[in-house]
Design a protein around this nucleic acid. Sequence first.
DNA 1: TTAATCCCTAGTGGATTACTTGGGTATAAA
DNA 2: TTTATACCCAAGTAATCCACTAGGGATTAA
Lengths: 136, 136
Amino acid sequence: MFSLSQKSIYGVLAALELAKRYADGPQNSRCVAEDHGIPCNYLEQVLAQLKRGGIVNSFRGSQGGYALARSPQEILVKNVLECLDGSLSLVSDNKSTVLDFFWHDAQTRIEAILDVSLADLIVATRQYDNVVSYSI
Amino acid sequence: MFSLSQKSIYGVLAALELAKRYADGPQNSRCVAEDHGIPCNYLEQVLAQLKRGGIVNSFRGSQGGYALARSPQEILVKNVLECLDGSLSLVSDNKSTVLDFFWHDAQTRIEAILDVSLADLIVATRQYDNVVSYSI
DNA sequence: TTAATCCCTAGTGGATTACTTGGGTATAAA
DNA sequence: TTTATACCCAAGTAATCCACTAGGGATTAA
């Protein structure tokens, strides 16, 4: 019923990567793309959009690349998604129905689920890796 | 970022209408469509899909129409949405990423938000109407 | 018999998605 | 100063999906 766009999936993945390497300075987009099997030129477009949204900074020239504009604690998954695919709005505003209140409430609760910082995500991926390792 | 399809919006609206009139026997689709400003032929297609999904029954001929296949208590909003637009799957299954566990968790929590029966929805719309009435 | 209703298929214009292509421009390092 | 390395940008595109519209056919109660 709902699904994430490929763009958003790539975007969060790239943002997480930049978060992991936050201390190491800018990362070039080609490496990030190759690491995650993302078409290189397409990822550039995604990163450009994240830049326009103030989530990422870019540095040109050799040794250039992309870096988070703020710390991983300050960037939420929701921010990335909203930047790339617009804000979550379950129903269009122009037609109103008797269920608007219900959809609006659902929307608020879904947004809350996505209030997770990149820093939290890093921790979560580590925990998940541990679980997987132990279970093997 | 995500949004509901028009089909789902119409579908839940129609299901709610059939729930409200559950005791009155089958309702014809044209009336339901006109009541909610839904294109008549399109709603028929939506109802046909709900029928194939076992959510609704249909009765042909004059005095025919559509009725819920089960009581309003037994039909969830999630059921209607899944019938019309497939199951909620945030990410495609063929490509796996380090974030699959996160998206999967989010998915489960979103599904929980939609575990609301049509009977609950009726109650909720009444409560909402009361709030609006009092606040005027 | 007839009017009402569901049933079914096909078509369609517009939008969106997920890219690809092919350059241009700034910058660090040689 | 040259050059390699990156980002920057615009256009095109095949495929798919969406939200209908159109137009008949089949069944049933009255």
